[in-house]
Simulated assay, not measured.
Amino acid sequence: MSKAILQRIVGPLTVLCIRFEDADRYATHLFILEGYGAGCRILRESAEPDAAALKKACAGRPVLISVTGYGVVTKPTENTAIVEKVTSDPETFAWSLSSRENMDKQTESISFVRREQVEPLLESLSGKGVPTADIRYAAATDDPEWEARRQAEGFYRNLSWRILLHSSLEGRMAAKAAERRLRLPVLGVMLLLLVVNTFASGSLQERRAQLRTVLSAREKKMERSQERTAGRTAIIADFTRRLPYRHALLLDRAASHVPPSVTLTSLAVQPMLKTLEDGHDPVCAYGFLTIRGRTQDAGSVSTLMGGLKSEPLLREARLEGLEQNRESGETEFKIAVAL
């Protein structure tokens, strides 16, 4: 599956089958083949194409050149003396290695030709815009189509994702062809993304502004909450700070001066001055003790005031409220004592 996808990405390739009739004359057959599965099919072929056809057929495709015929010698690689002689003299010989299956046996061979014979051919092809980097020399054949299929099938058979990362000739050709074929789809996708971004940017910016507004409001609300919490913490700390004497002792000493005829209704240290409201800090009378009560004898209030003023632990006592309840006839009072 992956090989089929890669074949589709790389696309068709061009095979030039060149057969030397003699040292100066050669015939050219051009084939454009496309790989599918384990085989390949011919899309177009041409005999003796002109320069324009060659340039067009080779543009943007992998190009394989097969040279056969007069002057091309093929020997098995088992003959190491010939292989060494040919490969050690690149200025005299041009060569390529190939392998074939014969009777279920893989045979390796080397095909070579004198460089002085193929140099004019290479110059001619280069002048027509044909890349000449991948030239394969092979034994003579009278069927250029068979030779083109053999070359193409070998190329597609060796094609893999890994070869695209290699610096080999086949890897560079495949990578260049894939890049050329993917250029337009990639540009199309990028253009589509730009168009989508253009239409979506307005709504995204509006949504971003809304989120920023919500976030800012939440931050301000959190800051106010933190300020209220800090204020309440300070109030609680101030409320719970120790007086010169313990609260229980102060309350006990204040209560010791209450006459028997007086009934206390409230005795509070640092009482709240107003009802606690949601979202507001408590307001307390710091450093004060409040005494509330009622009595049938109004003179008992004066007795209580005198006792509180004589108490060493209490700094000051003042009468803040005194009234008579019309229903019960009792005198109700409120005394504030400075601690």
Rank of each mutant, 00 (worst) to 15 (best):
126 S>Q: 09
51 A>Q: 11
120 P>R: 07
38 A>Y: 06
136 R>W: 00
124 S>C: 09
137 Y>H: 06
121 L>A: 12
80 T>I: 13
138 A>L: 06
98 S>M: 12
110 I>C: 09
71 G>I: 09
83 V>N: 08
42 I>D: 08
66 S>H: 01
61 R>T: 09
49 P>V: 11
113 V>C: 06
152 A>K: 06
126 S>E: 08
116 E>L: 12
128 K>G: 00
97 L>W: 04
122 L>D: 06
137 Y>D: 03
103 M>T: 08
105 K>G: 11
131 P>S: 11
147 E>Q: 14
117 Q>C: 04
86 V>A: 08
154 G>T: 05
131 P>F: 02
93 F>T: 05
137 Y>K: 03
50 D>I: 08
155 F>G: 06
147 E>H: 07
96 S>G: 15
58 C>S: 11
88 S>F: 00
56 K>G: 10
84 E>L: 13
101 E>W: 09
53 A>T: 15
147 E>W: 03
109 S>L: 05
39 G>D: 15
150 R>V: 04
141 T>K: 02
49 P>H: 04
55 K>I: 03
76 P>K: 03
116 E>D: 15
153 E>W: 00
50 D>S: 08
49 P>F: 02
91 E>W: 01
94 A>H: 05
93 F>I: 07
131 P>D: 13
41 R>L: 12
112 F>T: 08
131 P>C: 10
45 E>S: 15
112 F>S: 11
110 I>H: 02
111 S>L: 08
80 T>W: 03
139 A>F: 03
65 I>N: 10
114 R>W: 03
79 N>W: 01
126 S>D: 07
79 N>I: 04
153 E>M: 13
141 T>I: 01
68 T>I: 02
115 R>K: 14
145 E>P: 02
109 S>I: 04
148 A>M: 02
138 A>T: 02
80 T>A: 13
98 S>W: 00
40 C>R: 03
